[in-house]
Amino acid sequence: MSPEGLSKPEYQVPQEMQNQVALTTLDRLYNWSRKNSVWPMMFGLACCAIEMIAAAASRYDLARFGMEVMRPSPRQSDVMLVSGTVTKKMIPQIVRLYNQMPEPKYVIAMGACASSGGPFKEGYNVVAGVDKFIPVDVYIPGCPPTPQALLHGLMTLQKKIESQSLKEVSWYQKGPGEPIPVPVLGPDLIDMRKAALIREKSQPVTEPEEAAVAVEEAAQNGELPAKEG
């Protein structure tokens, strides 16, 4: 083990014992082990995902950071690399995946698209940043960030992990964490947290008319009452 990362510098260990003994705090030990085994979720969205694959492959080799174990299941992963454009059609799934990840969980927004929509921001099917829905820990600018930039972003995340304290982290607080409400696909994307705002700003007309519109719309789309699971 590398003592620089682990030992607490305030405590002096006698020279002759330095190879056998390390003095540290629980926080440091906890964070040191955590930061060296951050398992990303095997989950790629767009162009950046190809660079993520490249970063996991032999030239850049994520395994050097203990991150090579890409887990396809959110239940087993620690960090979600949002690697690409987040679309409105995809965001319900992303939020659901995030809710399924166990604490402690981290999110990296890789590239301009994940941070704010990027060059596709003006598009009608693009979410203007994944942080509109899920909290992001590290942003990596670039379009796409090179694998080296991604590694830099992961090291930035490691620094963040190092700075956390057992006493304050949210996952050891009382009570379960609140899941993020999954957005709904309506005539446009509906963020359920903003439902009141949406109703207010959509200039309500008289109630019966509105209901008729909804029914008509449903009929147009050929929607039958939902029975399929």
Binding site: K121, Y124, D191, A195, I198, Q203, A214, E223
Partner: peptide, 23 residues
């Protein structure tokens, strides 16, 4: 809405029945 969205006038999100992909 401070977001990349727009809705038809008179839209009420709470009354919306999401598409169940029946088709």
């Amino acid at each position: 809405f401070n977001d990349n969205v727009q809705y038809p006038t008179g839209f009420d999100p709470e009354r919306w029945v999401p598409e169940a992909e029946t088709l």
